[in-house]
Computed example of a mutant assay.
Amino acid sequence: MLHPRVGRCCSYSAEPEGRGTQGVAIKTRWKLAIDPSEEAALAENATRCPNVPIKVQLAR
């Protein structure tokens, strides 16, 4: 079983740069671009947060 804080570490609130799962959802929802350093940070975060579902509702 994962430590209870793992889910929190993967969330946007724990990632000031918006690199957690909620940050990914926001970027996806609004189709926002990311730069190469942000892409690298997102990829690194994803390896620490495997199998964390991300729900996205696209903006109209």
Rank of each mutant, 00 (worst) to 15 (best):
M1R: 15
M1A: 14
M1T: 15
L2P: 15
L2F: 14
H3W: 14
H3D: 15
H3Q: 12
P4D: 13
R5Q: 11
R5N: 11
R5C: 07
R5G: 05
R5M: 13
V6H: 08
G7S: 11
G7R: 13
G7N: 14
G7M: 12
R8A: 13
R8M: 11
C10G: 03
C10I: 06
C10R: 00
S11Q: 06
S11E: 10
S11Y: 02
Y12R: 12
Y12H: 09
Y12F: 11
S13P: 01
A14Y: 03
A14P: 00
A14T: 04
E15T: 10
E15G: 01
P16Q: 00
P16L: 01
P16E: 02
P16V: 02
E17S: 04
E17P: 00
E17A: 10
G18N: 08
G18K: 02
G18H: 04
G18T: 04
R19F: 07
R19I: 12
R19N: 12
R19V: 11
G20W: 08
G20F: 09
G20T: 07
T21Y: 10
T21E: 07
Q22C: 11
Q22L: 08
Q22M: 12
G23L: 04
G23Y: 03
G23E: 03
V24T: 08
A25M: 05
A25V: 09
A25W: 07
A25I: 06
I26D: 14
I26V: 13
K27R: 15
R29K: 13
R29T: 07
R29Q: 14
W30N: 12
W30L: 14
K31R: 14
K31P: 02
L32G: 04
L32W: 06
A33D: 09
A33L: 12
A33M: 07
I34F: 09
D35Y: 10
D35N: 15
D35S: 14
P36S: 13
P36D: 07
P36A: 15
P36Y: 10
E38V: 14
E38A: 10
E38R: 09
E38P: 06
E38D: 14
E39V: 04
A40P: 00
A41D: 09
A41G: 12
A43R: 15
A43H: 10
A43S: 12
A43Y: 11
A43I: 10
A43G: 03
E44I: 01
E44C: 00
N45T: 07
N45G: 05
N45K: 06
N45S: 01
A46K: 06
A46I: 01
A46L: 01
T47R: 08
T47A: 00
T47L: 02
T47K: 09
R48S: 04
C49T: 06
C49Q: 02
P50V: 00
P50Y: 02
P50T: 02
N51K: 05
N51R: 05
V52I: 11
V52F: 11
P53R: 05
P53C: 08
P53Y: 08
P53F: 09
I54Y: 04
I54P: 04
I54C: 04
K55P: 07
K55A: 15
K55L: 15
V56P: 03
V56M: 03
Q57E: 13
Q57K: 11
L58D: 00
L58F: 05
A59K: 03
A59C: 03
A59R: 03
R60N: 03
R60K: 08
R60L: 03
